[in-house]
Amino acid sequence: MKNITLGRTGICVPQNGFGALPIQRVTLEEAVKILRKAYDGGMRFFDTARAYSDSEEKLGAAFGDGYVRREDIIITTKTAAKTPEDFWKDLETSLSKLKTTYIDVYQFHLMGQCWKPGDGSGMYECMLEAKAQGKIKHIGGTAHKIGVAKELAESGLYETVQYPISYLATDKEIELIHLCNKNNVGFICMKGLAGGLITNSKAAMAFASQFDGTVPIWGIQRESELDEWLAFMDETPSMNDEIKAFIDSERKELMGDFCRGCGYCMPCTVGIQINQCNRMSLMLRRAPSDSWLSEYWQAEMGKIDECIGCGVCLSKCPYELEIPTLLRKNLEDYREVLAGNRKVK
Rank of each mutant, 00 (worst) to 15 (best):
P318R: 00
E300D: 12
G309Q: 05
S294W: 04
G64N: 03
E336H: 09
E125A: 00
E175K: 12
K303I: 06
A169T: 08
C180K: 10
L179P: 05
I177M: 09
T236H: 14
V161Q: 01
F232Y: 12
K131D: 01
D47I: 10
E235C: 15
R222Q: 15
T100R: 05
I23Y: 01
G42H: 02
C259G: 00
G302K: 07
T83C: 09
E173H: 02
E320G: 09
G263P: 11
C114Q: 11
N330G: 10
L168I: 05
A149S: 00
G340E: 01
R279L: 06
A204S: 14
A130D: 03
N330R: 07
S166Q: 02
T100K: 03
G66I: 01
D227T: 14
S315Y: 09
D40L: 06
L110Q: 15
T76E: 10
A231F: 05
D227S: 14
F211P: 06
A61M: 08
K191D: 12
G195Y: 08
L193K: 10
L28R: 15
A132S: 12
P117R: 05
Q276T: 13
E228H: 14
K137F: 09
E295M: 13
G213V: 03
A299E: 12
S289L: 09
R36G: 07
F63G: 02
Y106T: 00
P117C: 03
R70S: 04
E336Q: 13
M283T: 04
V337P: 03
P84D: 08
R251Q: 13
L21D: 11
G156P: 00
K78A: 05
Y102A: 12
N200Y: 07
E225I: 01
C310P: 08
K58C: 01
A38L: 00
L179G: 05
T83P: 10
H178V: 08
T142V: 00
P288T: 03
K2R: 15
A61Q: 07
E300H: 09
A132L: 05
E228T: 14
Y319P: 08
V68D: 09
N200P: 08
D72T: 09
Q113L: 11
F246E: 13
E159P: 00
I146V: 11
I23V: 09
K131M: 03
G134V: 00
Y167F: 15
E71D: 14
S294F: 02
I73G: 02
G256I: 00
F108I: 12
V13L: 10
A299V: 11
F207L: 05
G66M: 06
E56D: 11
P14N: 06
K191P: 10
L331M: 09
E306I: 11
T101Y: 12
D90K: 02
K58V: 02
K2G: 07
C265A: 05
A51D: 10
R25V: 07
K135G: 10
Q210D: 01
Q133F: 02
G219N: 05
L91N: 08
R222G: 08
V68I: 14
E320F: 13
